[in-house]
């Protein structure tokens, strides 16, 4: 390993990390918004909307992000819809993540026995109150590990961004290897930078999980 090479590449990796984080987190935020929206629509039980949500979830859970990005970036312009690579990246991540988040929220909600809602209602709570004080705190506890896993998954999925010309961590490493063939240095930096990006998320996730567990029934 050559130290000078690593020092020389560091700024490029830093830039790539910032881009990956920026687009990654935009994607995660969008994913949460889409996920909540889907869950909400499902709870409303309006027939047509509910089927649309199912179609959306199945479509995006069963196609690779790579294919979705290709579609957004290369196919849509042919239909007159143009987006910057960054927008395609965050929208693609958001759509993919939204489908996963919706499923995670659903499993959280379904893990709460119906008798709890019934009990809450019989105590005189409105259904909003039952949701706010009884159902959601517990559902959130059950969902949180899934949500954290989704966030890490989404941040890692940024590694296919090279197809839409975004210089994320993975593409930066590949590009430098292609130009200067310092494979060992480039890939080592790549591993280190992914860890810098993801370790805090996973540490924060475990902390959050432990904290949320307080709301768990019978804990």
């Amino acid at each position: 390993m050559e130290k000078e090479v690593i020092l020389q590449y560091l700024p490029l990796y830093r830039e790539a990390l910032l881009l990956t984080l920026r687009i990654g987190w935009q994607g995660v935020l969008l994913a949460l918004v889409f996920g909540v929206a889907c869950t909400w629509i499902r709870q409303l039980k309006i027939p047509v909307l509910k089927s649309l949500v199912t179609v959306y979830i199945e479509l995006f859970r069963n196609t690779p992000l790579l294919v979705q990005l290709f579609f957004l970036y290369f196919a849509l312009p042919k239909a007159g819809i143009r987006m910057t690579p960054e927008l395609c990246g965050s929208l693609g991540l958001g759509l993919l993540g939204g489908a996963y988040m919706a499923e995670t929220f659903r499993s959280g909600l379904e893990s709460i026995a119906p008798i709890q809602e019934e009990s809450a209602l019989s105590l005189g709570m409105t259904s909003m109150q039952a949701l706010r004080y009884v159902i959601l705190p517990q559902a959130a506890t059950y969902s949180i590990s899934g949500i954290v896993a989704n966030v890490i998954f989404l941040l890692k999925e940024t590694s296919v961004f090279s197809v839409i010309s975004l210089m994320d961590l993975m593409f930066t490493a590949k590009d430098l290897i292609g130009m200067y063939a310092k494979t060992l240095e480039c890939l080592t930096l790549l591993v280190v930078f992914y860890l810098i990006m993801l370790l805090p998320v996973s540490v924060f996730g475990s902390w959050l999980e432990r904290r949320m567990r307080r709301a768990e029934f019978g804990a």
């Binding site: 290369f74 090279s162 197809v163 010309s165 210089m167 593409f171 590949k174 590009d175």
Partner: peptide
């Protein structure tokens, strides 16, 4: 530069 991996893209 706008960089791509492959010729097709």
């Amino acid at each position: 530069l706008q960089k791509y991996d492959a010729y097709a893209e």
